[in-house]
Design a protein around this nucleic acid. Structure first.
Lengths: 262, 262
DNA sequence: CCAAAAGTGTTCCCACTACACCCATGT
DNA sequence: ACATGGGTGTAGTGGGAACACTTTTGG
């Protein structure tokens, strides 16, 4: 956990180590209980929530920065992480006073006043990345300024700071359009999963329903999954078979594009 | 045309009006003579060519900046212009000395020395936009520092500064993948065009061949084009029919996505 | 035995594919 | 007449879509 001192240092000297005017925001998608979810944080001094994000070090590549920021906030590494859009149109981001006030409230926690000329008050464009992670493997590294964090259902997104609503909206559209060209699932499901599980995942992500039989046929035809000889006990009902991804075919599909479209 | 004085002023004071660390580069696609082409410029002091680009004003939205930069360089407005990726991984861009030297050579033309601490020597990420324009409507506004400019065949791209090769490569991949979801053509062809023309355009963009009959069938089935009652005289051969886009269906397809895939 | 969830096969149809001959025009 | 390029139709097939009953399991 960052100490108050470290946090205050960042506000005072961060501009020496990080590029100003640019940030990275991560839309972390998880999946649980038939619902697509997004990981959000709430900073001190605000009712509104935010996407986890950070700044780019002056001597670090953009890709490295995105992975580092995600790892810092969630301890997740080696994850599906993709840039999807850069945001620089929002009126809030153009307004220095608004930007200053937002940061000022946050840093009040460590008794740092963010003035109008502070580097954090300057206009900042945000480079959006989205990640697909296993809902369960998320380990949070609480930062000093974060009061609360958690998963939020995709259809019950709370009020957000800046243009984070637009960023989530765009990320979701990107995810939905890329799912037609790329297989997903490997990053959102446990290693072994049942057909109803991956079926419900696709329905949750795309927001529509698919025929069970056709869905299975398609996955097997594409060779994306392999049926195992095991079943899962789910209590009072028939035991579903377990499946696993065929990683060879999966990665081939990732590279070449393999529509799982209906 | 920018005067030498204005250009020198930009180098000296540009950082007051523009955001540092960020630029916009435009990949302008045109189409002519069965070839997909890209508009390139060559700066003073360099053999290598560059994409037309520029900086974002401090009080201007990102979208406005992209349109302004394209308009400044090419006089083109109201064009299909889309952000596709932000580049920040290239070693050249991380290397301050290389960046300084490149700018130094350019600005030698106006007798401005770019030092190691000059704002133009700082690390800059580039936001890539691609545009589709009519090859013939391009009117160049020669800038003081530009020695040469012109269209370059997509498969004969010359040596380029920075990571512009990677930017073009990514733009082309984006164009090719989006053509499967979005109709193009309206921005690359004259208002009235023949079937062989749009057919050859698709072949040039996607780098493969399509059956003439199936291609026409698909376009008409989708309702993207309308056959007109006119023909074009093309000299010693049979006169082809003219077609025009059905803008209503065209825009519907742009919003909803309409694969023109084979 | 009942409720809840999972497993499974067939038919239809449309859209993609492949394919070749005739027509118009200018020289 | 001929060379060049443009126009046009049909038949086959494979993949997506629609559709309902049976099996398992625990209570």
């Amino acid at each position: 956990m960052d100490s108050a001192q470290q946090t205050a240092d960042f506000a005072a000297n961060g501009h020496q180590f990080f590029l100003p005017h640019l940030s990275i925001d991560c839309v972390v998608f998880g999946y649980h209980d038939h619902q697509l979810k997004i990981f959000l944080v709430r900073y001190h001094g605000h009712e509104a929530w935010s996407l986890p994000g950070g700044f780019i070090k002056r001597d670090e590549t953009l890709t490295d920065a995105a992975n580092r920021i995600l790892a810092e906030k969630t301890q997740i590494t080696n994850v599906f992480l993709r840039q999807f859009h850069t945001f620089g149109d929002s009126p809030t981001r153009l307004n220095r006073i608004e930007t200053q006030q937002i940061h000022n409230k946050i840093y009040a926690k460590v008794n740092v006043a963010i003035g109008e000329d502070h580097w954090l008050s300057e206009r900042t464009l945000s480079i959006g990345y989205y990640a697909l992670v296993d809902y369960h493997t998320l380990i949070i590294t609480p930062e000093h300024l974060i009061e609360e964090y958690g998963w939020c259902d995709i259809d019950k997104i709370l009020p957000l700071l800046f243009d984070h609503h637009e960023i989530i909206e765009t990320a979701l559209l990107t995810l939905r359009s890329q799912i037609y060209q790329l297989p997903i699932g490997y990053n959102l499901l446990p290693a072994k999963f049942t057909l109803p599980e991956i079926h419900a995942l696709y329905e949750a992500v795309l927001g529509k329903t698919f025929d069970r039989r056709n869905f299975r046929k398609k996955l097997l035809t594409l060779g994306l999954v392999r049926q195992l000889d095991e079943q899962r006990k789910i209590g009072a009902h028939r035991s579903p078979f377990l499946y696993e991804f065929d990683l060879q075919n999966y990665h081939k599909a990732l590279e070449q594009g393999a529509p799982l479209a209906y």
